[in-house]
Each structure stands twice: as structure tokens, then as C-alpha cells.
Amino acid sequence: MSIDVIDLRDFYSRRLGIVARRLINRSIRAHWPHADGMRVLGIGYPTPYLGLFREDAERCVALMPAAQGVLKWPTARPTLAALVDQFALPLPDAAVDRILLVHALEMSDDPAALLREVWRVLAPSGRVIAVIPNRRGVWTRTDNTPFGHGRPYSRSQITQLLRQTWFTPTAWSEALFMPPVAGGWFLRSAMAWERAGATLSLPFAGVHIVEATKQVYRVIPAYRERTRLIPALKPVLVPSSTATRG
């Protein structure tokens, strides 16, 4: 279900992609105003959005799945992007403070396994932001953008998936209320669409943006051991050896 990295790069280089990046970055920044001294990891195709944290974070790295491909990032600096197996990230446990998932869950063949790997590498006090296509949005109904590929989700489906993989959703927002049309008027009025959609709580945004925390103490089901009933034995009189000889 993955989309090729070249198609992703081309989308974000066009006018519609530039506007989409600006609107989604606006919502991400509202959740995470800063990342001073933190270790930030992006998974999927997060490079259009990691620039928010690259200058302030202690470390800022992008990991892209093998099925998608990888591009050099940043272009004019030492590379901070790598091609990985998304189900076996090359990081130790609790290694990062913030994880940004973009074009990741909806493209993954096993999103639950991906989130469990995210849980493993995230620090106990860490946070995750996932940008996920909204199944009720207009953007999922066209192949002209990356948000029309893969599996879109409703809010309830995202909540269930996160809880199954030991995360707790803590904050929600939406972005891309404007139609995915590259016409000049739609692009110029994009911010007005965002304000109107957020004010009216419209359900047709292009993407969900959910922040979640790691459940450090997971609920483990307790099983009560069934008591085994041992049958009582009736006492038997055994004749003594002296009585036998007499």
C-alpha cells in the first residue's frame, strides 16, 4: 500500500503540497510549540514537517520504510534520513522523546506492529503525533495527493488502534478543510477554509492530527488459577507384622 518516495517529493514541491504542508505544520506546532534539547524522530515521510524541530532539537532524524524508499534530507547538510525496516527500527529501547508519524500508519501493512515498535523506542515521558487521513474527508477521494492512498481512518478507529498498542490519545485537531484543488482561488483562501472548519467543527477535514502518550504501566489480564480438587482417601487399617505372625 506504500506510495513511492518520488511521488511524495513531487507532491510537496507543487503548490497544493506547499499549502498542505503549511496547514499541517500549523496544527503540529500548536501541539508541540518547541522541542528544545529533545530527541525527535520522524517515521514514514516526515521530512516536510521535521524542519519545525531540526534547529532546536538535540537530534532530529527521519526513518523511511523500505517499501517506500528514501531521499537525502536535508539536501544541503549531512544526511539525517535512513532506509529502515519499519517493524525493526535500528534504535534501542526508550531512545527518543518525540515521534512524528506522517504517511506511515495508513501506508503500513501492519499498523499495530508499527505502533508497538514506536512504543518500544519512545521514552516513558515521550509523546507521539500521528497525521492520518480522515476517512470522511474529501482528500481521501482523489489519487492526486498522498492522502488518497492507503487506508484512511475515523477518529474512533484511531482511538481503538492506539489503545490496543498501549497509547493514550491526549489531544486532537484536524487540518486540510479546503478541497484538494490546485486552483488559485482555493489556494489563496486556504486559511479561511481552515478557520471556518475549525470554528464550526466540521467533520470533513482531510487529516486527523492526534497526539498520544505512552502507557508505561499496561493492564495485564489476571487469570485465576482453578483449584484442583483432590479426592479424599478413606483410611485403611493395615495389619501389623506381629499380628500377622500370631
Rank of each mutant, 00 (worst) to 15 (best):
P179W: 06
I129C: 10
A66G: 10
V118G: 09
P90W: 10
A104P: 00
L91N: 03
A104N: 03
A88G: 11
Q68S: 12
W139P: 01
A81E: 06
S173P: 01
Q160L: 14
A81V: 05
T168N: 05
L114V: 14
T170C: 11
H103I: 06
A113G: 08
S125A: 14
A175N: 01
V96C: 13
D93S: 14
D56T: 09
R120C: 11
L187V: 00
V121I: 12
P124R: 07
V96M: 09
R136K: 06
R54C: 03
T168M: 12
P124D: 11
D97H: 01
F167W: 05
D56E: 15
V131H: 02
Q160A: 14
W172Q: 07
P74Q: 06
C60Y: 09
R155V: 11
P146R: 10
P111Q: 10
V102S: 05
L50M: 07
P133I: 07
W166K: 13
S154K: 06
L115S: 08
G148R: 01
L50F: 08
N144T: 13
G150N: 03
V181A: 13
T142Y: 11
R54I: 14
R98T: 03
T140H: 04
Q164H: 06
G126K: 09
D56A: 12
M64H: 02
G148A: 09
L101Q: 04
I132N: 05
F177P: 00
L100M: 05
G148D: 09
V61I: 15
A82K: 02
W185V: 07
V121P: 07
L63F: 13
R163F: 01
A112Y: 06
G183D: 15
R127A: 09
L50Q: 06
L161H: 08
A66N: 08
R135I: 09
I99N: 00
V181G: 02
Q68W: 03
M178F: 15
A95P: 03
I132R: 00
L91S: 07
I99G: 08
A81G: 08
V102Q: 06
Q86K: 10
L115H: 10
D110V: 02
P124E: 13
A95D: 13
L101P: 00
R163T: 07
R98W: 05
P92A: 11
I158C: 12
Q157E: 15
F177E: 01
L50T: 01
F147A: 07
G137W: 14
L162M: 14
W73Q: 02
